[in-house]
Amino acid sequence: MADDRLDILSISERWTREGRKVALATVIETWGSAPRPIGSHLVIDAEGRFEGSVSGGCVEGAVVSEAIDVIETGKPVTLEFGVADETAWRVGLSCGGRIGVYVEPVTANAA
């Protein structure tokens, strides 16, 4: 496997085992030009520390603040980001991509 220090799912597991409250964000849908592919992860803890990426740095701040809510409520949410102007990328302006991001809490309780 790739470098463990950069593997977000391994980091999520390690942080949770360390007793930190953790949320995992995953890119689940992309439309138009998206900077990170479907399946990309960002892991966030209750203090707002994070590793990984779901975009080129544009929406991570918003995902981190939503993730802190998710850690508090324990309920997953799906977020959508991007320039809502559909015509922007159809005429070739690649800055108009949109992404869907699923944010879920990682819980240490047995299923």
Partner: peptide, 15 residues
């Protein structure tokens, strides 16, 4: 995600 699922997933990936 439950830690038990995350842990199982990571174990499968490592193997």
């Amino acid at each position: 995600m439950d830690l038990s699922i995350l842990s199982a997933l990571n174990e499968e990936r490592l193997s």
